[in-house]
């Protein structure tokens, strides 16, 4: 991750010529606060360090609540505000219940952006920067369809996904079904609520033990189910079952290299934190969000910015870092002109 982050920062400086644009010392103290511990967010830490160095921020620190618990996140955010942090990239512990704390942060002259997950409108967040989860799942299913070749029609696929309380989960389920229907593929089983090691191991392994012979493919749309499924296919040793996963866990990437997994849909957590830090600093320095900014609407908000997604397969698995870097650079290029109004 460190290597990846350094390469991101270096590439950004070189390819975009940002060295001269790096601002003077800023008093922006940015806090990057996920809803709780999850490997997805580990990239935020280095992204914050790099953004602070690159944009001259007083700080851009990764702060993790000790548990996925709304009250823990609220207490941490209150504490961070008291400590002097004045910009917050937040994965809302609850898209509705976190709005109140966001309003208090803004009322105390802090800036707030939602990262990786959105607040439900209306909220005081300037915008939401995250993965277009429905589109990512749709593209992932299309990649799986493509992997079957001309005989895709009539294939049977199992879908392993995340927590049902996460509003993204239903979007993913719907998107996968849509792509499957379009290709004439049957989703024979959706197993949700398993984005944690214990339930994922138990349910996926039990399902494959009973039904591996009855399915032709697996699509996963959450981190832990991807890892568990990749491991399971490796143990079974049968490359007949095609799989497309999600995210960039090393287990999944190695399975892609070894041919047990066809591909994985990477998201861009590094870019979310890096761009989020940049945008928060800009908002603090007086920029405002453009009224005609080209936001996307999703199930929660009309102010959504897609932080990017891409398929990583055997052809580009060793260069996945470059893919994420390109996506970050692509969004950064023109970000200020598209979304912010700075006098």
């Amino acid at each position: 991750m460190t290597d990846f982050a350094r390469r991101i920062a270096a590439a950004s400086l070189l390819s975009l010529g940002l060295a001269g644009a790096a601002s003077a010392e800023s008093d922006s103290m940015i806090a990057l606060v996920p809803g709780g511990p999850n490997p997805y967010f580990t990239a935020w830490e280095q992204a914050g360090v790099d953004a602070a160095a690159e944009f001259g921020l007083a700080a851009s620190d990764f702060k993790v609540p000790q548990k996925w618990e709304l009250s823990q996140q609220n207490q941490l955010l209150e504490s961070l505000l008291s400590q002097g942090y004045n910009g917050f990239l937040i994965f809302p512990g609850d898209p509705v219940g976190s709005i109140s704390i966001a309003e208090e942060l803004v009322a105390n002259d802090a800036q707030v952006i939602a990262g990786a997950g959105c607040f439900q409108d209306p909220s005081p967040a300037a915008f939401c920067l995250g993965t277009d989860t429905g589109n990512s799942a749709y593209l992932g299913m299309q990649a799986l369809v493509k992997s079957f070749g001309e005989e895709a029609k009539g294939k049977k696929v199992a879908h392993f996904t995340g927590f049902l309380v996460d509003p993204n989960t239903q979007l993913r389920i719907d998107a996968v079904k849509k792509a499957a229907d379009e290709a004439g593929i049957e989703i024979v089983q959706v197993i949700a609520d398993i984005d944690a090691p214990e339930p994922a191991e138990e349910k996926i392994n039990a399902y494959l033990a009973a039904h591996a012979g009855n399915i032709d493919g697996i699509i996963t749309t959450a981190w832990v189910p991807s890892v568990v499924s990749a491991n399971a296919l490796r143990k079974i040793g049968d490359k007949r079952i095609h799989m497309v996963g999600i995210d960039h866990d090393e287990v999944v990437l190695q399975a892609v290299r070894d041919g047990f997994v066809h591909g994985t849909m990477i998201q861009n957590p590094y870019g979310q934190a890096w761009l989020g830090s940049f945008a928060l600093d800009k908002l603090r320095s007086g920029c405002t969000v453009k009224e005609d900014a080209p936001f996307i609407a999703n199930a929660l908000t009309t102010k959504f910015i897609d932080s990017g997604t891409a398929l990583i397969d055997a052809s580009n698995v060793d260069g996945y870092v470059d893919v994420m870097r390109e996506q970050t650079a692509k969004i950064y290029d023109g970000f200020e002109a598209s979304y912010l109004s700075c006098n």
Partner: peptide, 20 residues
């Protein structure tokens, strides 16, 4: 009081099964 704190009634306000 937590409803007042959050401005909403949320099923996860006390964690899974209220164990928090």
């Amino acid at each position: 009081m937590l409803v007042a704190r959050n401005g909403a009634a949320i099923p996860s306000m006390a964690g899974q099964l209220g164990q928090d």
